[in-house]
Design a binder for these strands. Structure first.
Lengths: 340, 340
DNA sequence: GAGAGGAATCGAAACGTTTCGATTCGCTTG
DNA sequence: CAAGCGAATCGAAACGTTTCGATTCCTCTC
């Protein structure tokens, strides 16, 4: 129904190739008069080039695929993903690419679904926080689709952008330690995700290296959700010997933990210091505003686009880039109260 | 390079059509033996159907386009958009569609860019909060691309999903009025967006209908941004006769306004009641948590997908659906203090 | 045993582009 | 004036599918 290049050709009694040359301004020249005629006719008929047909022959779509993490529900509500996606979106726009958001890869092992990634619709893909069992990454790697793993597990042979989780956790722990805290707990994230694993490990190492005794009951799982952080803090507060500070593996959990303290009448940072991770926008809105580890997530998103485009062009891309986090000290951490 | 249906056909000495029938299980039957052989060979060769080629001939891509509002920067950080996008994403996944996010339509009037919408990559599109000068919607409408306008201006001939802004604003105003407030201010959004316009109008109407005097200095523009809300509240607080309550056209501005009050030592809700709009997740995290107007944005996103799919299928779709908001009373609103 | 009927399969067109080899034609040059 | 050249244009193949008409061939029936 929409007008095609053929319609123009027929109307003007020229060949389709001539029309194509005229419209694209190449790769061969056409006489100025013909060019003019073609352009006029195209405008007249409301011609729109069909990108699918073009993709078909050029093999390029100027589109990048985004594969969200394998979390089942409401992925797009994760502040982390939102920051990354925003960075990716902005960068993609600048380089004239659109984004395809794959809706059905999360958690699905179905072969049929997996294949939608490499069905020609995208030139490359960015995987957001994939874990090492993510079948889609594995498949993409196997089929040599240009792809970048953003803040995910280190997967053999896949280009990876990651944040130095160890550094971030050490910064947070050092900050609390220097304030005088010795009984420091940790609310961990989903332990099937790389970030969560590394943050937990760095916590353990810090405690051991500084000869701080710590119990299993001080390490809780919060699933990266506010409710998880809330529940975790509740059980920490029920302990006979309470920790004086807690580092959460993301801001959402820290927010939940803060809520638990407020409900139980435990003052923050007076009786309990709380430190978050990620510096999402919500972390600045709480009372008190959260001390948190800033990660340049948006930057990483931008960089992911650059890398994937380089990969598509065949330019060299470093196998691994690590971004350094920094500590943002706000008001949810302070010296512990003297032992009574 | 990747194996195609032809490779399988050649290998097995059958025709491409037979291979196609075998793989798709139709529309014609193939003998069980051949079917088996084809499927085996496909697996063996790592065959992946090329979706672009399929789109080419069927004219369907099982992909829905998303057109963000024409805000220039960091669109994806808007909580409103995030809620809508999440709803759309979930619904699209359920109906086996992927999403393409158009990165370059915002604010761009370039014809070339506009045409990327209707280049065959998507079967239909959802426009998020377009205003009436949005050229992309107009074009899509003109070219009869199935499309839905989500919470945007009413545009002639375009299917629209909207929220009853008047009702929402009236609920908020009535709530404050019943608490005893008479001097009620309004911090408006971007007045080039439909929601902002309607909320402002409903505010004016309520004030007039209830014979409440109000000044131009009580109606401020906050651009839907926290900083805008902050600045607006600052100028309200500088007024010789302060209002006792303010309704903001979204939560972000309410959060900014709250921050301004806290900085100036104005107690909320003691000296100033603040009401938000949208019920984004952040609105529950502030101290005090915001009273706000809940809009079923995620629901609307889901519904947008359903409607656009119906439109694609040729099913009848109502021209206009309105969703009803409700008031969520939390702690940022209370009776005004007695005049001193 | 000729003809009909039906299942299985084939071949080719079509979708809308891009691009490459081939053709036309006017002009220069020896 | 024949040969050669370059610019402009044409025609056709190719990309990987789907699908429709045509063909083959087996079996059943009278």
């Amino acid at each position: 129904m929409p007008t095609s290049i053929k319609d123009i050709a027929k109307l003007l009694n020229v060949s389709v190739s001539t029309v194509s040359y005229a419209i694209n301004g190449g790769p061969r020249t056409v006489s100025p008069e013909v060019r003019e005629k073609v352009l006029d006719a195209a405008r007249e008929l409301g011609y729109r080039p069909n990108r699918v047909a073009k993709s078909m022959v050029t093999g390029r779509s100027r589109t990048i695929g985004i594969v969200p993490p394998e979390i089942v529900e409401d992925v797009l509500l994760s502040p982390y993903l939102q920051l990354a996606l925003n960075g990716i979106f902005n960068a993609a726009g600048k380089s004239h690419h659109d984004l395809v958001l794959f809706t059905r890869l999360a958690g699905s092992g179905h072969e049929e679904v997996l294949s939608t990634i490499l069905d020609g619709r995208v030139d490359g893909a960015v995987f957001i926080a994939p874990n090492s069992t993510n079948r889609a990454v594995l498949l993409a790697k196997e089929l040599r689709i240009p792809c970048i793993s953003l803040a995910g597990s280190e997967i053999d042979g896949v280009h990876t952008l990651s944040v130095a989780n160890e550094t971030g956790m050490r910064l947070a722990m050092r900050h609390l330690f220097d304030l005088g805290h010795r009984r420091i707990a940790h609310i961990a994230g989903r332990l099937d995700m790389q970030d969560a694993i590394e943050r937990l490990r760095a916590y353990s190492e810090f405690m051991t290296n500084n000869r701080l005794a710590y119990h299993d009951s001080w390490v809780l799982k919060g699933q990266f959700h506010p409710d998880g952080g809330y529940a975790a803090m509740k059980s920490l507060l029920a302990l006979p010997v309470r920790p004086t500070a807690v580092v959460c593996a993301n801001d959402d959990m820290a927010i939940g933990a803060l809520r638990a303290c407020q409900e139980m009448g435990v003052s923050v940072p007076g009786e309990m210091s709380i430190c978050g991770f990620d510096m999402t926008s919500a972390s600045g809105l709480t009372i008190p505003p959260l001390t948190t580890v800033f990660q340049p997530i948006a930057d990483m998103g931008r960089h992911a686009v650059k890398s994937v485009l380089d990969l598509i062009e065949g330019n060299p891309v470093p196998k691994h880039i690590t971004f350094e986090p920094t500590l943002v000290v706000r008001s949810s951490t302070a010296c512990p109260m003297m032992e009574s």
